[in-house]
Amino acid sequence: MKSVVSPFLLKYKLPGVLFMLVATFFAACSNSPGQKESASATGTLQDTAIRSQKKIKNILFFGNSLTAGLGLERQDLAFPGIIQQRIDSLELPYRVINGGLSGETSAGGNERIDWLLNEEIAVFVLELGANDGLRGIPTDETQKNLQSIINKVKKKYPDCQLVLAGMMVPPSMGGTYVQAFRTIFPALAKENNMAFIPFLLDGVAGETALNQQDGIHPTAEGHQILADNVWKILAPML
């Protein structure tokens, strides 16, 4: 870069050494801003390059109508969509895939999971079993189906992080069944080393103001609480 000589030096004839000192001073003063600007620009380009190199990883939420957001105006109002908003606000390199299907049972999920695994996933959140419980499906059958789903995910993506959402059924299903159903989820989580959400509907189940008219599916406000329940477990993994 060419040094800029001040008119001051040309007007006054200074001794050689003094001239060089003063010239150096002016050159340094004139160059500093440009050098800082250049360094700043280089740093910005480097930061942009680093961000662009971050690979966006997929989080698959696999579940039933709770995951799908049945009854809500938009799917992004369901708890997976709320999780995506939090991820975006923190600029984390993750993309949420909502794999919820209303009415899905564990058996149906076991049949459906394969094609959803065609896209690589880094985190798998399993939310299934509630419809089994409401239909009184034998708990050993539900557990077998859920384990099969987990096995398929682990086989396809061994490094995938696994999360299991626990579920409960109403007392009307009978004490024996209620207890047997409840134990499915912590047992699966322990056996498969999965992060565990004890009860997805904690703080929402039974709360009239947080559920739609059917008393089963959360409102948009209810889904905010579901997102909180999930985020407590999921956030440290991201």
Score class of each variant (00 low, 15 high):
5 V>C: 10
220 A>M: 04
215 G>Y: 03
217 H>Q: 10
54 K>F: 07
73 E>L: 08
81 G>P: 00
150 I>F: 06
169 V>L: 07
103 G>Y: 02
212 Q>W: 03
235 A>H: 11
87 I>T: 09
163 V>P: 00
2 K>R: 13
106 S>I: 01
218 P>M: 03
78 A>N: 06
38 S>P: 02
169 V>P: 08
42 T>E: 14
155 K>M: 08
187 A>Q: 13
150 I>K: 05
44 T>H: 14
227 A>T: 04
140 D>A: 07
181 F>C: 03
160 C>H: 07
22 V>F: 10
209 A>P: 02
100 G>P: 02
196 F>Q: 07
16 G>A: 12
14 L>K: 12
179 Q>S: 13
25 F>W: 13
212 Q>R: 04
61 F>V: 00
225 I>E: 04
35 Q>A: 15
92 L>Q: 06
90 L>M: 15
29 C>N: 15
157 Y>H: 08
158 P>R: 12
16 G>H: 11
185 F>E: 01
29 C>Y: 15
47 D>W: 06
39 A>H: 12
128 L>D: 00
14 L>D: 05
88 D>L: 05
208 T>Q: 10
83 I>A: 04
152 K>N: 10
101 L>G: 00
77 L>Q: 15
84 Q>P: 08
52 S>A: 14
184 I>E: 02
140 D>R: 08
166 G>S: 09
49 A>Y: 15
205 A>L: 06
51 R>W: 07
29 C>G: 14
129 G>E: 01
107 A>R: 13
63 G>F: 00
82 I>C: 05
55 K>S: 12
7 P>W: 15
19 F>W: 11
42 T>F: 05
201 L>R: 03
89 S>N: 14
21 L>F: 10
190 K>E: 13
161 Q>F: 13
152 K>Y: 03
54 K>H: 08
210 L>S: 07
209 A>Q: 11
